[in-house]
Design a protein around this nucleic acid. Structure first.
Lengths: 347, 347
DNA sequence: CTGTTAGCGCCTTCAC
DNA sequence: GTGAAGGCGCTAACAG
């Protein structure tokens, strides 16, 4: 096609060739002047800079990426961006990625394995160099062994049967701290609202709950453990179930903050005062945990830091530095607010 | 370099050329078989499909994107992903983008103009085809006129002095509905907590508040209007200020839900019962508005739909269809919960 | 220090 | 219906 057919649209956007012409050098030199100026003489560097400015040139990253065979972006696979816990982690990832010169692609999956896989393929497609998983399932159809795995880091969740680089907290220990706090306040009948049992985090928190009770010579009573699914509604249902027991618990540990809020609602609906008649501990410390009434005592996950560290680890993987550790476990701290109080004297 | 030097790494990932060889056709044919199968004979199509399968071939989108000069991705510029309101909108955007075959790049800016610009440049860089803005400032150094604007849609916010495609609600009307509700309950002293005044949405909501009062023959009293910045803390401060007035309001309309929660806290701290002694209306209807105590009456923005529509509009822009309308205004509905009640009889 | 050359992997006329 | 050829814009050897 001759210059006649060229549309205004296409004519816009100067290319490196034009900059080279303007500066009176070769494109190779322009390229160098831009990416490794130390290889270019002071003077040439200036000529190029001027040409770039006067042409309003911006390198075409599509071309650069093809040439270098890298996308300079990573994909974050997450069940639900609008979940306050995940969005905090993503915030951390984004910060670290930006710092490292990577863009963040968002893959919201609603827990649909098909969508997980679709996003996982972005790596084969070469549109993403690496991937951070905020859920506990690898997004591949076939079971890959360690060496075949693409650059990938799991954040929050983890896999016990595979060696996948991971950043998370110790959920068993977190749960232990929650229960210890309640025991320290004199509670002996402590209920638990679990997350979904297909989730490792739920299982770990349950285990932390049970182990701590047993370690302290208390019985593990199935009746005091109600299943939930991390939603507020499920927490409310579980709360009602526990509070209508013949001998209701004086304290409840919920496996996340949303469910704790549900329990709170159930307690209110039944006229059970928190913390006077019922102490309540959540998990995660999402943004609103401090603003319910009463403010929620909870096990705080360092969400942002988890995100930042996960990205840092992925960055190391991508530059094929051996990441210093493939399994980082951060501290989760109990934040005591006003939803917990000493056990009622009666019992 | 000969085949000797080829690393295992590079050898992996079959290219279209190899598929062509396997199928005994040209690369052009493979390309066609993949993208426009109707141009290829039944039989060739099958041969190609077989070759693709046996080679485990996946097209390299980096190359495709360069060739077609499009990135198939859009960038979402947002002040804070972990803000529950924004994350809902993003959720909607992501859903629509996925459906339309676009990837979503996340640009979190913390309201830093430099970062806004950095992300805005992704379009010049050709790493993004279009952009959705969740804040009210164009991310360009120079003031661009209409025709020069890249494909861009503003969601939630808008610019009054420029013709930028926009999806949002009518904030003046939303505020009016909030105040009408309070008036209908018999309140006559109604306070308002504003958002930051550099924000159009804040100004609109304030205007809706004032206009409605005046339309109903009530005075607009500066003392009843307290500035906030959309944060819970600022809401609490404003709440204290309003409640310590000689003649405190019997109702408060806060320009967003977080600030309403802050007011709620202030009321609690001062022993003012909500809704008995103080009615409270928020704005946005974020996820947790329904779960504070008492559940918050609020003006609900259709966050997801705003996101989806914004992406739909951007999609139209990108395929250079003339979008049907460049300014969509969605309905915001008042959701009445339990934080509002008839005005105390006394006054 | 700089220019020449040769593609990255794909798509798209243009002929046949 | 198919193949040959050219090139998207850039960078990485390799000479000079």
């Amino acid at each position: 096609m001759g210059s006649i057919g060229r549309t205004r649209q296409a004519a816009r956007t100067p290319t490196m060739k034009e900059v080279a012409r303007l500066a009176g050098v070769s494109t190779a030199t322009v390229s160098r002047a831009l990416e490794r100026p130390e290889l270019v003489s002071e003077e040439t560097r200036r000529k190029v800079a001027d040409a770039v400015a006067s042409a309003g040139y911006k390198p075409n990253l599509l071309a650069r990426n093809l040439r270098k065979m890298e996308a300079r972006s990573i994909i974050v696979i997450v069940p639900d961006v609008s979940n306050p816990f995940f969005s905090e982690v993503i915030h951390g990832i984004e910060t670290a990625a930006h710092r490292a010169g990577y863009s963040v692609l968002l893959g919201n999956t609603e827990n649909d394995p098909a969508r997980e896989r679709a996003y996982g393929e972005l790596i084969d497609d070469r549109r993403a160099d690496g991937m951070i998983l905020l859920n506990g399932r690898l997004p591949f159809r076939t079971r890959l062994a360690g060496a075949e795995l693409p650059p990938l880091v799991m954040a929050c969740e983890y896999l016990s049967d595979q060696d996948v680089p991971t950043v998370r907290i110790d959920n068993i220990e977190g749960a232990r701290r929650a229960v210890m706090h309640l025991l320290g306040l004199g509670h002996r009948r402590i209920g638990h609202v679990t997350g979904p049992m297909w989730n490792v985090l739920s299982r770990d928190r349950l285990q932390g709950y049970r182990d701590t009770l047993i370690d302290h010579g208390l019985p593990y009573a199935e009746a005091l453990v109600q299943p939930g699914d991390f939603s507020i509604g499920s927490g409310a249902a579980a709360g009602h179930a526990l509070l209508s027991l013949p001998e209701p618990p004086t304290a409840i540990f919920a496996a996340n903050d949303e469910m704790a809020m549900g329990v709170l609602r159930a307690a209110r609906e039944r006229g059970v005062a928190v913390p006077e008649a019922l102490s309540l501990v959540g998990f995660d410390d999402i943004r609103f945990a401090a603003y319910v009434d009463p403010p929620l005592t909870t096990v705080a996950q360092p969400c942002r830091r988890i995100g930042e560290q996960a990205m840092a680890m992925l960055g190391a993987l991508l530059s094929s530095e051996p990441p210093e550790e493939r399994r980082v476990v951060l501290e989760a701290e109990l934040v005591v607010r006003r939803s917990t109080a000493p056990a009622p004297a009666g019992r």
